[in-house]
Design a protein around this nucleic acid. Structure first.
Ligand SMILES: [Zn+2]
Ligand SMILES: [Zn+2]
Length: 726
DNA sequence: AGCACGCCGACT
DNA sequence: GTCGGCGTGCTC
C-alpha cells in the first residue's frame, strides 16, 4: 500500500460494488482516504476501499480527481459499513452514504467574513448617511470585528444596511479563522459522590474501558437509581485514555436538560447529533469528530456512523426504545448495530434501561452480556399503583373516551392541586372521518390508511406519506353537507373532552409533531415543573431524567393498543410506559396512580401490569414468545415487495412465495398484503421468514432472491429482525 | 442516485 | 417537422 496505481473506491451510491480508479502521478493514496472521482459526466465523493480489483482494464480507468484533506476513514469504520451492509442486506454504498452524510465537511471550512470600521474611509459621492447606517458604524467604534448578521442584529437593522456600508467601502472586510470547536469535556473534573452500589458499578465499567476489548453490559436499574452518573464514569475513563465516547439516546430524550446535566459533570457539553441540526452545524461537527477534536458525541441512531478516530466506549441509553429501529431507507436497529460496532472496534458497550428489551434481558440472562443491577437509592416501591379500568362496564359516554372512574380520579387530583397526564399514542383529533349519510371513509389515495383529522390545523392528514388536504365541507362521495363525522379519539379530541370537563384546568398537548428539538422539549418540561399546567395530554412520555413530583395521576386512554394485533412488542411497550410513568410521577410518600383503560382486564399481561410484577411480566412475555418461536427465541426477516402495478407486485410476490426456502425449521409465511398494502402510491406485499435463533438468514435470503427474477419496476426490501408489524 | 440515450404524442 | 414525456441502463 502507499504506491498503488489503481485503487477501489466505494461510492455512496446504490452500486453493486466499488469502482476502480487510476491514481494519478504525484498523488499518494491510502485505504480509507476520502477522494473525489469522476463518474460518468459528474464528480462524486468516495472512500478508497482497497486495492484495485483489476476487472476493468487499466486503460479504461479514470483518474482520481483529488484527495480530501481530512483524516482517512478508519479500518474499523470501513469494516463496520461492510458489516451493516451484509447484515441488513443493503448495498454497501447505501450504508456508506450514512457515513459520509455531510459531503461539505470534507472541504476545509471557509474563513468567516467579519467587518471592522475603516478609520480612513471617505463616503463615496452620492452616499446617504441614515440612522441605521450610523448605528452600525457606531457599533464598530468599539468592540471586536463582527459578522454581518451579528452587526445587523445588534444595530436592529436589516442585512441590506450592512451590505450597503460594505459596498460603499466604509467597512474593512476581515477573514477570521473558522470558529474553534467548543469547550472539551474534562474527564479530570471530580464527579459527584456515588453510593456504594454506584461506585461498584462505575468501577466495573471503568475497568472494562481501561482494559479495552469488546464486552456488552446491561446496566439495569429503575429511574432514580443513578444509572447516568455511573455511565458518566465509563465516559471519563475513555476520555482519560484519549479516546472518544458515544452516547446514543432516543431523539425525544435528548433535551436541553440532559445536555446541562452532562455539562455540569464534565464542564462542557458534548457534541450533539440529531435531526434538528442545521447544515453548518452538521458540517462542523462531522469535521471536528473526524479530526479527533470531539471527545464526546451524544446523538440519535445516525451518530453511530460518525468518523470517530478511536472510540473508547458506547453507551446506549434507553436501550429498549423502539425509536432505535430505523425503518426508512436502510433498515437497521441502532442498538444491535452499536453492539456490532463495539465488537469490531474492540470496545465495551453499555446498554442502559430500567425496562430492558426482552432481547437484551435474554442476552443478559444467558451470560452473553454482563449485567449490573443498580438498586433504587431511595428504596421502597418502584411501580406506581396500577388500576385497571374495565371499559366494558365502566363506559365513557358516547363519543367520549374517559371512563367515569378516570374522570372521578381526575377531579380529585385537580382538586388536590396536583397534576395529571393522559396518554394516547394517536396524534391529531380523530383517526377516521366518515360520512354519516353514505358511510364513505376518508382514505389516503396513496396509502392504505385513513386520513387523520387535525382539527387545530383544520386539515386531514396522512401519517404515512404526509399528504394534507382541507376538511371537505361536503361528502366527496354523496355530496351531502354537514355529514362528515369524526370517529375515534386522538390527543386533540381528548384535550377537547378535558376542556369540557374541566374548563378551568390548564391543559396542553404534547405530541411528537408539536415537540421537536431540545428547546421545545425543555420548554414543556419547564411548564410542567413550574406547575403552569394541570393536565398534559401526550402521545409519548416525557424525556428521561425529569421528575414531576406534583404529577400524581396518569391515565392511559387505550392500554389495549396493539395488544391483540400483530404487534409483537405491544405488551413490552405498555410495561415500559408504566415504568416511565413511575419514574416521572409522584412523590416519595405519594407514588402516584396509573389507570389503564382496557377492554380485556383479564388478559395475563394486564394482570401482571396491575400486580406490578416485573419478573412475572418478563416471564410471561418470554414464554409467549418462546412458544411462538418469536424473537428473541427465533429469528424473523421480512421481504417487502413493492411497485406501482399491483398485478406485477402480486406476480413477483407469488413467485417469491413459490421459491421460498422451506424446511423442518425454516418457514415462510405469505405473501400477504403488507401492513400498509399501499404506501406512497406503491402497492406492497410481505413475506415473513421464520427460522430458529441460530440460523444465518442472510445467505438463505440471498439464495432465495437469486432464484427469482425481479423486474426493475419492482423493489424488494429486506427487513432483517423486523420490529413493527403495523 | 444521477444522467444519459431512446422512442412515441402535441406544439411552434 | 421539432420539443419533450419519462422508461431502461450505465457509470470504473
Ligand atoms: Zn356521503
Ligand atoms: Zn398516505
Amino acid at each position: 500500500m502507499g504506491a498503488e496505481t489503481r485503487v477501489a473506491v466505494l461510492l455512496p451510491l446504490p452500486l453493486r460494488e466499488a469502482y476502480d480508479y487510476r491514481v494519478p502521478d504525484g498523488m499518494t493514496l491510502n485505504h480509507g482516504d476520502f477522494v473525489e472521482v469522476p463518474l460518468g459526466p459528474r464528480r462524486v465523493i468516495g472512500v478508497v476501499w482497497g486495492s484495485g480489483a483489476g476487472v476493468v482494464e487499466a486503460r479504461r480507468l479514470k483518474p482520481v480527481v483529488r484527495r480530501f484533506d481530512v483524516p482517512p476513514m478508519t479500518a474499523v469504520a470501513r469494516r463496520f459499513v461492510e458489516w451493516v451492509a451484509a447484515y441488513t442486506m443493503t448495498l454497501p454504498g447505501f450504508v456508506l452514504r450514512m457515513a459520509v452524510s455531510v459531503p461539505a465537511a470534507l472541504e476545509p471550512p471557509k474563513p468567516i467574513l467579519a467587518y471592522l470600521k475603516r478609520p480612513d474611509a471617505l463616503a463615496p459621492p452620492g452616499f446617504k448617511m441614515t440612522d441605521a447606517r450610523r448605528r452600525v458604524l457606531a457599533l464598530l467604534e468599539d468592540g471586536p470585528p463582527r459578522m454581518p448578521g451579528e452587526l445587523a442584529e445588534e444595530a436592529g437593522c436589516g442585512a441590506t444596511v450592512v451590505r450597503g456600508l460594505a459596498e460603499a467601502g466604509l467597512l474593512e472586510p476581515l477573514l477570521l479563522p473558522p470558529a474553534p470547536p467548543l469547550g472539551r469535556p474534562d474527564w479530570a473534573r471530580p464527579g459527584p459522590a456515588l453510593s456504594a452500589h454506584q461506585e461498584a458499578a462505575a468501577d466495573d465499567l471503568r475497568g472494562r474501558v481501561q482494559a479495552g476489548g469488546y464486552s456488552s453490559v446491561l446496566l439495569d436499574g429503575v429511574t432514580g437509581s443513578g444509572k447516568t452518573e455511573v455511565y458518566y464514569e465509563a465516559i471519563a475513563a475513555a476520555l482519560k485514555q484519549g479516546k472518544q465516547a458515544l452516547i446514543l439516546l432516543p431523539e425525544i430524550a435528548l433535551s436541553a436538560q440532559w445536555l446541562d446535566r452532562f455539562a455540569r459533570r464534565f464542564g462542557a457539553a458534548p457534541a450533539e447529533w440529531h435531526s434538528e441540526l442545521t447544515g453548518s452545524q452538521r458540517r462542523d461537527t462531522w469535521r471536528a469528530v473526524a479530526k479527533g477534536e470531539v471527545p464526546v458525541v451524544v446523538g440519535a441512531r445516525s451518530a453511530l456512523f460518525l468518523p470517530y478516530p478511536d472510540l473508547g466506549v458506547i453507551i446506549v441509553d434507553e436501550e429498549h426504545d423502539s425509536a432505535y429501529k430505523q425503518e426508512e431507507g436502510a433498515i437497521y436497529h441502532a442498538r444491535d448495530m452499536a453492539v456490532a460496532r463495539a465488537h469490531l472496534g474492540g470496545l465495551p458497550i453499555v446498554l442502559v434501561s430500567a425496562t430492558p428489551s426482552l432481547e437484551t434481558k435474554v442476552n443478559a440472562d444467558s451470560g452473553r452480556y454482563a449485567r449490573i443491577e443498580l438498586p433504587s437509592r431511595h428504596g421502597g416501591a418502584q411501580l406506581p399503583e396500577v388500576a385497571l379500568v374495565d371499559l366494558r362496564r365502566d363506559r365513557p359516554p358516547a363519543r367520549h373516551w374517559l371512563a367515569p372512574s378516570l374522570r372521578k380520579a381526575l377531579t380529585e387530583t385537580l382538586a388536590g392541586g396536583e397534576q395529571a397526564m393522559l396518554f394516547l399514542n394517536r396524534r391529531g383529533y380523530a383517526p377516521l372521518t366518515l360520512c354519516r349519510a353514505c358511510g364513505h371513509r376518508m382514505q389516503c389515495p396513496n396509502c392504505t390508511a385513513w386520513l387523520v383529522e387535525h382539527r387545530l390545523a383544520r386539515k386531514l392528514q396522512c401519517h404515512h406519506c404526509g399528504l394534507q388536504q382541507p376538511l371537505p365541507p361536503a361528502c366527496p362521495e354523496c355530496g351531502e353537507e354537514g355529514t362528515m363525522a369524526a370517529c375515534g379519539p386522538g390527543v386533540e379530541r381528548i384535550a377537547e373532552e378535558v376542556a369540557a370537563l374541566f374548563p378551568d384546568a390548564r391543559a396542553a398537548i404534547m405530541a411528537s409533531d408539536t415537540l421537536s428539538g431540545p428547546r421545545a422539549i425543555q420548554e414543556m418540561v419547564r411548564k410542567i415543573t413550574d406547575h403552569e399546567l394541570d393536565i398534559i395530554i401526550g402521545t409519548q412520555v416525557m424525556a428521561k431524567g425529569h421528575h414531576f413530583p406534583m404529577l400524581t395521576l396518569v391515565g392511559v386512554v387505550d392500554a389495549d393498543l396493539g395488544l391483540n394485533g400483530g404487534d409483537l412488542r405491544a405488551a413490552e411497550r405498555t410495561y415500559q410506559l408504566l415504568h416511565q410513568v413511575a419514574g416521572r410521577a409522584g412523590r416519595g410518600e405519594r407514588p402516584g396512580t396509573v389507570m389503564l383503560q382496557t377492554f380485556m382486564p383479564e388478559h395475563p399481561v394486564m394482570q401482571a401490569l396491575a400486580a406490578g410484577d416485573r419478573d412475572g411480566f418478563y416471564q410471561l412475555e418470554a414464554e409467549m414468545r418462546q412458544d411462538a418461536g418469536m424473537p428473541p427465541f427465533g429469528r424473523l426477516a421480512a421481504l417487502i415487495v413493492s411497485g406501482e402495478d399491483p398485478t406485477l407486485v402480486d406476480r413477483v410476490a407469488m413467485a417469491l412465495g413459490r421459491a421460498a426456502p422451506r424446511s423442518e425449521t425454516v418457514h415462510v409465511l405469505g405473501p400477504a398484503p403488507a401492513p400498509l398494502a399501499l404506501l406512497r402510491g406503491r402497492h406492497r406485499r410481505r413475506l415473513l421468514l421464520k427460522a430458529p435463533r441460530a440460523t444465518q438468514v442472510q445467505p438463505l435470503i440471498a439464495e432465495w432472491l437469486g432464484r427469482v427474477e425481479i423486474p426493475p419496476a419492482i423493489r424488494v426490501q429486506i427487513d432483517v429482525d423486523p420490529y413493527s408489524f403495523l
